[in-house]
Design a protein around this nucleic acid. Structure first.
Lengths: 215, 215, 215, 215
DNA sequence: CATGAATGAGCCTTCATTCAT
DNA sequence: AATGAATGAAGGCTCATTCAT
């Protein structure tokens, strides 16, 4: 209830701001509201359990009206997914840019990933919560989007100086799996996302590498 | 398909044996068929996308007939979940029993977990694929079941000799998360579950060993 | 729960008694149990809300087994209806036989009717609770049965010495309607059926007496 | 059938009026049609035997469409019940208002009750045909509604000048029972509802009272 | 832009009934 | 006599989607 009202208040504020300042088309607003409502519902309930009625209702709209802004439920999911990838990618890229060495970059990326998924963004959580198979008609595009994002981790892991012929692919899957699964057990109040990221990377970080890097 | 036929053959054998020897109820056969069909569908499509019609159809039955064996879709999910936990727990326990030291035990457990989820058992995959929230009316019991299983990993991790005050909880979450997420990316033909388990535990073990030496 | 068990105990007792004493065919017993269970359910829940499963379960039987004793749900209803008419008619006839004059006979009949319907017999209550239209395929026979019983009241009212050309049909409908509707509002603890009968007939008798005197 | 068409004609007239004058929501039309169809089915078949498909079909609608107007079958029943109470109460109140003394008022009330239930209104008949227990989830509200209406008869009976310590409650139950049961035996062509009301009240009307009142 | 109203396919579930054993 | 197992029709309800206004 309360978060619903917050959402609507937020929408109104956004509306006022935009009209006063950069005068984006009004339509964009409603679309954004719908997107936000969809993101929240999809993140918390998954694709099948989220109804068009839920989303439209959260945005203060009737179900039929939603179709003025989005052609279908699949389209809406796609739009949320895209926005989710955009946001988490931006956060991760920004975090990585500020880190000094490969291990620090990886840890920063993990922290940014976790923060975005767990605290900051319903959009990003959708990427983790909704499986491409849940919407078979657009699953290809969902997979493409996710891969585009996850490619960053391939590069981050490739940059590590690992001893011996380590299988970097598995290292990446180990880390990303742990990060994504966090959505199942994470509750606010325990370790922060940043602490978790430090902990997770810590467990796989090679002391020799540190020594190497320090050199 | 193939496993369904196996099931049926198995059923006939069982029937012959039973009549001669211990006379178990005939019913168990159809119930088991339904359970197997449900497990497959639930593992592959999730709870909401799986219909009673799907399951009954797979078992060669009309939808209404299913209700002779199970009281509701929730009950069916619960039965599959229980069987899933039973199977994966048995496999993990057996694997652990044959291993010599803490690290070997952990690796054996991971291998057994992955093998069960990825190759052997639709039942076990359901534990990973279906979130308790998907069936709110029985979510409590699903959580209890899952916790009963995962407790094993807590004990396995507690038995490790770790340097310093490592946070064992996060180590467990790192590993289990990676294992469970594998369901999203795993395709037969790449690394075997056993290889993946060795790889995952290996990264952590080496990292910790180095940390110890470095001190 | 408790009444269910009582029923079953009752059935067992009945079984023992009968086998020891007059050795009626065992089948009759089970049929009687089913009839009793059906009567209770039909009296309390009505025809549509009562299921074959309910009845069979109350008699300690599976639904399919019931069909050995009764050909259909309609048949079962019919049998209960017949027994109900038999019982209430017997009670009313016995009561009427012991009364001295027409008004006393009418009152006695009303008291017996109310006692049977409200306290003594689920069977009789079914006549009042289940409308013939509820089972269209046998409604004709239900109506015939009910009419056969209600004919008694026609005769009882005809025997009254009424002033002037009173419409005896309406008098009968007034009384019978009031009696039958009692099932809707009656709760044990208030007036007894006998008191109600005295009260109902009393109103009419006094009113008619006065009318006579006034002339 | 015929009244359905009347309903539709009425709807068109209403529409024309509305658009010119007070612009009530168009929706009311279809809702009213559904209500009328539900009332007819419920009055004739009872609650359990009436299906959503019946009602929607009568209103020229698909089953799912009905749920745009009513949230559930229970809700629909409730709405019909409310309308039934409104109508019969209004008719009774109007009739009572035009009568000169307590006995005349009671007779007028009975006549209005019978006319409404038997001839004029499917809505009102539902109050008599459908027992609150038939819809357990809303039985409380149904009882409240029925009580609110029947309270009128308590007051009407209390106003009578009766000789001696008469039990007015039983007098009320006698009358109301007879009135409500009429639904079981009434067929158009015999006594009119008004004649029945005169007949019923006549049987219990005390000559002394009349004398008293005449004084 | 949005609504009112409806569609139609599909969902989970119930239930009287059947029948081989 | 009774059971296990199934059937098939139906029931209440949901939901993505459409479309005239």
């Amino acid at each position: 209830m309360e978060s619903l009202e917050n959402k609507q208040l937020f929408g109104i504020l956004l509306l006022m701001t935009e009209q006063a300042a950069f005068r984006a088309p009004r339509q964009d607003n409603r679309r954004r509201q719908l997107l936000a409502a969809a993101a929240r519902r999809l993140a918390h309930q998954g694709f099948r359990a989220t109804t068009i009625r839920d989303i439209a209702g959260d945005a203060g709209m009737l179900p039929g009206s939603l179709y003025y802004h989005f052609a279908s439920k699949n389209d809406l999911l796609l739009a949320v997914y895209e926005e989710g990838v955009r946001r988490i990618a931006a956060n991760v890229d920004r975090a990585v840019a500020g880190a000094a060495n490969p291990w620090a970059r990886l840890e920063a990326a993990c922290a940014a990933h976790l923060e975005t998924v767990l605290d900051h963004s319903d959009y990003a959580q959708v990427i983790v919560r909704v499986l491409p198979q849940d919407a078979p008609e657009v699953s290809d595009r969902l997979i493409t989007l996710r891969d585009a994002y996850e490619g960053r981790f391939k590069r981050l892991v490739d940059d590590l100086a690992l001893p011996g012929p380590s299988d970097r692919r598995n290292l990446r899957l180990l880390l990303l799996g742990a990060l994504n699964w966090s959505q199942v057990w994470y509750r606010p109040g325990g370790d922060t996302p940043a602490a978790l990221a430090r902990s997770f990377t810590g467990y796989i970080k090679h002391a020799l590498d540190e020594a190497q890097e320090a050199r």
